[in-house]
């Protein structure tokens, strides 16, 4: 007997939780609209056979929609049951599966794709550009306009967590009228900056003393520990010195011989012109002293980092 066409297979694949949630919500809304009964199954607490039990026709008829979340953490029983269901699909049952990435559950994934499942991709939103795109999409889907400055301000303020970014966007969409620009974002999220050790280090190496100190304060206030900040500073200075003493060559070549990424080489090359060898020496010593102090050698870790930043930014100017 030829396999009956599966009425509805939806595969939500990708690690970005908020997109996964949205995909499920919209799919379930459709299913409910069609009068289907929604049954959720948790991969972590799954018991063998439950899937087939739910998939078997009920006495009262009607269609069903089975939602299986986190296939990437599924036990072998769940995978086997899913494969069995896919091989012999029950009528009037639609299946929604989410998979967060990784190799586990690959067989189920491939089978679903082969059977022509409707796939929703939920790629991770990591870089600032991804986040900006995400915000733009949020606004355009609500038929609202946001300026580039506004996007930047919003990502800077609440960009650490995509969920927070989404809720901040929807709040702005609901509360305001007209074009959203950075002034509007400031009204809601003014003065809040989610700084990371990398941004502190970037500003420090670029010699922006005030900016670096401001970012440091923000980073500490949002819960970043001084220890990783110092570690990032040390790593950045080390890259500067390596690139500075490596001489000429294409950045790809240098990257290979120095064990760095090409963009790191390019970045270091842009900064190195402002630094003298003596200045770098002073900077490295300041970082080493600060590292000792943030690990218990001094009384006030934040002060130690601040002082290191001051020393480094001053050393950059010195010729």
């Amino acid at each position: 007997m030829a396999p009956a066409p599966v009425p509805s297979l939806v595969l939500v694949s990708g690690p970005e939780e908020i997109l996964v949630d949205r995909a499920i919500t919209s799919t379930l809304a459709e299913a409910r609209a069609a009068g289907a009964e929604v049954i959720r199954l948790d991969a972590a607490t799954y018991e063998a056979g439950a899937l087939l039990m739910h998939a078997s026709p009920s006495l009262f008829g009607g269609s069903k929609c089975l939602v299986v979340r986190d296939l990437h953490e599924a036990s072998d029983e769940l995978q086997l049951d899913l494969l069995a269901l896919l091989a012999d699909p029950a009528p009037d049952v639609s299946l929604v599966v989410t998979h967060g990435g990784g190799m586990k559950g690959k067989k189920v994934l491939d089978t679903m794709k082969r059977l022509g499942a409707h796939t929703v991709e939920c790629p991770a939103i990591k870089t600032d550009r991804d986040k900006s795109d995400f915000v733009m999409k949020e606004f355009s889907s609500a038929r609202r306009k946001i300026t580039g400055e506004g996007v930047r301000a919003l990502v800077e303020a609440v960009g650490k967590d995509v969920r927070e970014l989404a809720s901040a966007s929807s709040q702005l969409i609901a509360d305001t009228e007209g074009v959203v620009d950075d002034a509007v974002v400031d009204v809601y999220h003014g003065g809040k900056v989610e700084a990371t050790g990398f941004r502190v280090a970037d500003a420090t190496v670029a010699g922006q003393q005030g900016e670096a100190l401001r970012l440091l304060r923000h980073a500490i206030a949002t819960g970043v520990d001084p220890v990783p900040i110092v570690a990032v500073l040390a790593a950045q200075l080390r890259q500067l010195i390596k690139v500075g003493s490596a001489g000429r060559g294409s950045s790809a070549q240098l990257a290979r011989s120095l064990g760095m990424a090409p963009w790191q080489v390019d970045k270091a090359r842009r900064s190195i012109g402002h630094w003298s060898a003596e200045g770098l020496a002073v900077a490295v010593q300041a970082v080493a002293a600060a590292d000792f102090e943030v690990k218990g050698g001094g009384r006030d870790p934040v002060y130690a980092v601040e002082r290191a930043i001051l020393t480094i930014t001053r050393a950059r100017g010195a010729r």
């Binding site: 080390r238 490295v284 010593q285 970082v287 080493a288 002293a289 590292d291």
Partner: peptide
């Protein structure tokens, strides 16, 4: 040596030291 004992990454401590030995 003191810094390495206090958990400063050895490479960083050694760099700061070597710079003073120029």
């Amino acid at each position: 040596r003191d810094r390495i004992n206090a958990n400063v990454p050895p490479l960083l401590a050694l760099e700061a030291m070597a710079l003073q030995l120029r």
